[in-house]
């Protein structure tokens, strides 16, 4: 058993599962947006505005943003623990990644809720 405090759940099975679940959500969301682009006859500001006014789409978007956060953290954590060996440097980078992801998430919510 290898201990690791900084991974998403501290447990390999759960990390693995979260990465898969979030990937599925992101895939479905991507298809949804692509479908919207494909099937909307006139793709203008009004069309986008109307789409994002629905509470369902808002929640789905936030769910997708959360999935991106989860997915990116598991991936970035894996990459950093593979390639960055000095512990202090890795910790700094990990904190930077967490701050960046968190800010993205706040911005995403702000955008979705401003519609």
């Amino acid at each position: 058993m290898v201990r690791s405090a900084t991974s998403l759940t501290g447990n390999g099975v759960r990390d693995w599962l979260w990465q898969r679940v979030s990937a599925v959500i992101l895939a479905v969301y991507t298809l949804f947006i692509l479908g919207f682009i494909w099937f909307t006859p006139q793709l203008d500001y009004v069309a986008w505005f109307q789409l994002f006014q629905g509470i369902g789409v808002k929640l789905f978007t936030i769910l997708a943003a959360l999935s991106l956060l989860t997915h990116a953290w598991v991936g970035m954590w894996t990459i950093l623990t593979d390639y960055v060996k000095p512990a202090y440097l890795r910790l700094i980078l990990e904190v930077l990644v967490i701050i960046a992801l968190f800010l993205y998430f706040i911005v995403a919510i702000a955008i979705v809720w401003s519609v």
């Binding site: 201990r3 390999g12 099975v13 894996t78 623990t81």
Partner: peptide, 12 residues
């Protein structure tokens, strides 16, 4: 199995 659940042993 329990000894292998961490993020490194198998999941790397």
């Amino acid at each position: 199995l329990e000894a292998l659940t961490d993020p490194f042993s198998v999941f790397r």
